[in-house]
Amino acid sequence: MTDHKLDPALEEFAGQIKDQMQSFLVAVQAIAREADGGRAISLLLLEMSQISLAGARLGAQVDFNPEGEYQPDVGPEPDLDGLRLRLAEVLGEVDTYSFVFDPYVPEVVESQLSDDIVSISTDLENGMRHYNGGNIAEALWWWQFSYVSSWGNLAGAALNALWSVVSHDRLDAEFTGEDEDVAVANEMLADEMSLRAEPAPR
Rank of each mutant, 00 (worst) to 15 (best):
D79Y: 01
G156Q: 12
I136L: 06
S23A: 03
G177D: 10
N126P: 11
A197S: 05
K18M: 12
L58V: 07
A197Y: 02
I136D: 04
L113T: 07
R57L: 11
D102K: 03
P103Q: 05
E77A: 08
S194K: 09
E187K: 10
L58D: 13
V90K: 14
W163G: 13
A137M: 10
A35F: 00
S149F: 13
E125C: 02
A14W: 01
S98W: 08
A40R: 02
E187L: 08
A88G: 08
D172L: 12
L140Q: 02
S49H: 04
A200M: 08
F24M: 05
L124Y: 02
F99H: 15
P76T: 05
A190I: 04
A173I: 12
E34K: 14
E178S: 15
L83T: 05
V94I: 15
L83G: 04
L6P: 10
S121I: 03
G59A: 04
D63F: 04
G134Y: 00
E107H: 15
S146V: 11
M48T: 05
Y104D: 10
E89A: 05
T176N: 11
L162C: 05
L10D: 11
G156C: 05
A27S: 12
S23E: 01
R86M: 09
S114K: 06
S119F: 01
E174F: 07
D63Q: 11
E89M: 10
F175D: 14
F145A: 12
H130F: 09
V62A: 12
K18L: 13
L159F: 01
L91C: 11
G55D: 00
S111T: 10
A139D: 09
W163N: 15
A56G: 10
Q29I: 06
G152P: 04
L195G: 03
R86S: 13
Q61F: 03
V26H: 14
A173G: 15
I41S: 08
T122H: 10
P199L: 01
R196G: 05
A158R: 11
L195A: 02
G156S: 11
I31M: 08
Q20I: 00
L53I: 02
G59W: 00
L87Y: 07
R129K: 15
G156Y: 01
G55T: 00
A185T: 08
D179M: 06
Y131L: 03
D115I: 02
M188C: 06
V74M: 03
E192C: 07
V182Y: 09
P103Y: 01
D95Y: 00
E192H: 09
L162W: 00
D19L: 09
M21C: 05
G15K: 12
D63M: 08
G38V: 08
V90E: 06
V184G: 07
I17K: 05
F145E: 11
L85R: 13
D3R: 14
V62G: 15
S49D: 08
Q16C: 09
A60D: 15
L46N: 13
R86G: 01
R33P: 06
S164R: 15
L53K: 05
R39C: 10
F64S: 11
V74E: 03
L85N: 10
A30N: 14
S164Y: 06
A88V: 06
R196W: 07
V182T: 10
